[in-house]
Computed example of a mutant assay.
Amino acid sequence: MNVVAQDLRWGVKRKTIVSDVSLTVAPGETLGLIGPNGSGKSSLLRLLAGLRRPLSGRVEINGRDISKVPRRALSQQVAFVQQNAATDTNVTVRDVVRLGRTPHRSALSGWSDADEAAVAAALDCVDMTGRRAQAWQTLSGGERQRVHIARALAQTPQVMFLDEPTNHLDIHHQIEILRMVRDLDLTSIVALHDLNLAAMFCDRIVVLDAGSVRACGIPDAVLTQDLLRKVFRVAADVSASPDAGRPHIRFRTE
């Protein structure tokens, strides 16, 4: 499914947080949202996922205005992975992933073979099948994030939105999570802080600054020394990597 945003604007009180943002995400593409703190990444992600209504503009998924799609129907197509989802409830990994089937089930429906198959496939996709009976509280941070993604996959979505999915993870788990997201057969839009990870794993990158799009394109066209200085206010050397279109950024201290 493709995602198209047209002239999105959103804010609170008198402060504009997302300002006239337009973008298009192709089916199967992994789009990265990057920008300084407060640039509007999380807010834009929630607008695109239909979790917030814009003050103006529209979002279309596969040609349909999502404001006119019933919430349950939208949740069957779109999944959202938060930065940090936590629970104090004593639940297993499988219990958490089963929650992803909620949009597909009515209040009176029983647990079906299709539900079970979706949960099993989601656990297998994130390599957590062997941990399905393990208590949530015993998981590491990287394992929990994989379970969050499995819960989203259990929705059988066609578009996935991820808000800082590698936040607070060590580098091994950061790479593991983003490689897994990139390899999914889905359209993915992911907000990231780490610019080198965005360059490694995203097909295209949108740079936000003060709620507006400053640049959009493939990583090596977007992540330039000039943009890093103007938007992120850092000095850096940008070099080519062996992967075409995948630059490497080395930040300077001066």
Rank of each mutant, 00 (worst) to 15 (best):
P242F: 01
S67P: 01
L99K: 11
D194V: 08
A85H: 04
K13D: 14
T92F: 05
H148S: 11
Q225V: 10
A154S: 06
A117H: 02
A152G: 10
D127T: 13
D185E: 05
T24L: 13
V234R: 13
S19P: 01
L223A: 15
R182C: 08
G35Q: 12
G130T: 06
G63E: 00
G50F: 10
D203I: 04
I149F: 05
R151E: 09
A79D: 09
H104R: 00
F161I: 09
M160R: 08
H172V: 13
A85Q: 05
V93M: 08
G110R: 12
L186H: 03
M1R: 00
R233W: 02
N62L: 10
Q137A: 15
P242S: 06
N196F: 05
S239V: 15
T224S: 15
Q225N: 13
R71G: 14
F161N: 08
V91Y: 11
A152I: 05
L184W: 01
S75L: 04
V91M: 12
R131Q: 12
V207E: 07
V190K: 04
N167D: 10
R252K: 15
A114L: 04
R146I: 07
R105Q: 13
D209I: 02
L48R: 13
A154Y: 00
N37T: 07
N2I: 00
R151C: 10
E29R: 05
R146Q: 10
L55K: 03
A133Q: 12
S56G: 12
N90D: 15
L192S: 09
L184D: 03
D209A: 09
D237R: 15
S239C: 10
W136L: 05
A244C: 11
H148P: 00
P27T: 09
K13N: 10
Q83A: 11
R214D: 08
F232T: 06
D226N: 09
P103S: 08
